[in-house]
């Protein structure tokens, strides 16, 4: 029991030292600038399709739910602002975070453990190239940059799919749908931007957990499998816990 606690503290300390090493490698930009662009392509552009599909369905199902509830209380005039409020602030950053943790977290952890096991990391060290600057920082930065972008896309698409449900399917008046958004119930500076801030933290969390698990991989195939599983599980739980904290902080 005592050992278990000590292990948690030691693991946390190593994790923080790891993140510090990543951040301190900013000093050699010629190593990470182009790699960061490549990683944005992998992490951000590669996840775009997934996010588009997810946002369509989240928008539809959430609008459906709210439509049923608001209809009971004859408050349908507020439909779009209720939907937008829920999606912009919570659903979009959290769902995007969880999806990316699944898609990118596992990939990054597997990649890193592969690089580690096939001695590419050692080889970079032999060439005098810091793997922190060349392998980790680009992924870390790409995660922080890509998540807000994906959240923006998620927001925009889900509000349109919400519109499609309400206006096209349920015959709501176009103006009645859009007005509550503009009329000061949902604020761009607060609701949309808060979601973006949150997602930056999620992006950093997902990637750093995945890198950490990948970098300290145990030997063998089972080690690789373990590290990518752990990356996804820890990142997902971390996102949910962090979401609560950040919501309290930002509201």
């Amino acid at each position: 029991m005592f050992d278990f606690l000590i292990n948690i503290f030691v693991g946390m300390g190593r994790f923080i030292r790891f993140i510090m090493s990543i951040m301190s490698s900013v000093v050699s930009p010629y190593l990470w600038v182009w790699q960061t662009v490549v990683q944005i392509n992998m992490i951000g552009v590669g996840s775009l399709f997934l996010i588009c599909i997810a946002s369509i369905f989240i928008g539809l199902v959430f609008t459906f739910q709210m439509y049923m509830i608001l209809n009971k209380f004859s408050g349908l005039s507020q439909l779009s602002s209720v939907v937008a409020f829920g999606i912009f602030r919570e659903l979009s950053p959290v769902v995007t975070g969880l999806l990316i943790a699944g898609r990118v977290g596992s990939t990054v952890a597997a990649e890193l453990s592969q690089l580690r096991q096939s001695e590419q990391v050692d080889s970079l060290l032999m060439w005098g190239i810091s793997p922190y600057a060349y392998l980790m920082l680009p992924r870390f930065l790409a995660g922080i940059v890509c998540l807000p972008v994906l959240v923006l896309v998620f927001d925009a698409i889900s509000i349109y799919s919400s519109w499609a449900y309400a206006v096209l399917l349920k015959g709501m008046e176009n103006q009645i749908f859009w007005n509550p958004l503009l009329d000061g119930n949902v604020f761009f500076e607060q609701d949309v931007l808060y979601g973006l801030y949150k997602s930056m933290f999620f992006g950093g969390l997902i990637i750093s957990v995945a890198l950490f698990q990948g970098f300290y991989v145990k030997r063998g195939v089972s080690g690789m499998a373990q590290s990518s599983t752990k990356a996804v599980v820890y990142a997902s739980l971390g996102i949910l816990a962090m979401d609560y904290l950040l919501s309290q902080l930002l509201y």
């Binding site: 096991q117 096939s118 001695e119 590419q120 050692d122 080889s123 970079l124 060290l125 032999m126 005098g128």
Partner: peptide
Amino acid sequence: VRGKLSFLFQRSPLM
């Protein structure tokens, strides 16, 4: 030390 050495790895260190 690493500047003086080169390592011929068992696996492939190529990216």
